[in-house]
């Protein structure tokens, strides 16, 4: 067996609250290999999202105590500096959030939001970033991408927003993609389309995916390993 691409060992995420310490995650281990999909299932409040926010380093630093280790491609993430994490986020590891409307900025066009990730990590020009945004929108199946690129999120339908979100997270060809209930807010047909899209993109780019859901049917469909 090859060395795992992402390895989480004895992960503990504890929040200090007014009512004492909440142990959201206590001693979690898992490995994920390149190009595979790990499904994480659990009821609400079982620490699924918290685990993944911790991988990206997006937890609240002041009120959260994290222990254990997270190795991404040999790099320890929990001890990484904010600057190192910035370089990894959106670039090597990306995340798709559950509520695409709330997770996309209402103040910027879809194209700009996709493009700014690309510009940040590749130093591309505005023009290149725009071309890349259109390319990504095409890939995720948005019709008339060269027009829709200048739209704002509120001008997109729910399914299109989630596609745009996926386009945004994949714009730098990340090796790790964390999808946090990406289909929960969508209806069943769109859900199936999004799942297919993720599978296609995974095959194309060889991305490892952590797929969080509370829907076992979805997990059976996509995951190679479940925990």
């Amino acid at each position: 067996m090859s060395t795992p691409f992402l390895s989480v060992r004895d992960l503990r995420v504890h929040f200090s609250t007014e009512d004492g310490v909440v142990k959201a995650v206590d001693g979690l281990d898992f490995d994920l290999e390149q190009g595979k999909t790990l499904g994480i299932v659990g009821e609400s409040g079982s620490g699924k999202s918290v685990t993944n926010l911790a991988i990206l380093g997006l937890h609240h630093k002041d009120s959260t105590a994290i222990g254990g280790e997270i190795l991404l491609d040999g790099q320890e993430l929990l001890t990484a500096t904010e600057r190192e994490l910035e370089r990894l986020r959106g670039n090597k590891m990306a995340m798709i959030f559950q509520d695409a409307l709330a997770s996309l900025s209402p103040y910027h066009t879809i194209g700009r939001q996709i493009g700014e990730t690309y510009r940040k990590h590749t130093g591309a020009s505005k023009k290149e970033a725009r071309a890349r945004s259109i390319e990504m929108l095409t890939k995720v199946g948005i019709p008339q991408p060269d027009l829709r690129v200048d739209d704002y999120p509120h001008q997109f339908s729910g399914g299109m927003r989630q596609r745009a979100m996926i386009a945004m997270s994949l714009v730098c060809n990340p090796t790790l993609l964390i999808a946090d209930e990406p289909t929960t807010a969508l209806d069943v047909t769109v859900q199936a389309q999004i799942m297919d899209l993720l599978k296609d993109l995974q095959q194309e780019f060889g991305t490892s995916i952590i797929f969080i859901t509370h829907d076992l049917g979805v997990i059976a469909d996509i995951a190679t390993t479940s925990s």
């Binding site: 997006l58 994490l85 910035e86 509520d99 900025s105 209402p106 940040k120």
Partner: peptide, 12 residues
């Protein structure tokens, strides 16, 4: 807001 978290998740 969620979109601020997204912006951080993009590495900005």
């Amino acid at each position: 807001e969620d979109y601020v978290r997204t912006a951080r998740a993009k590495g900005l």
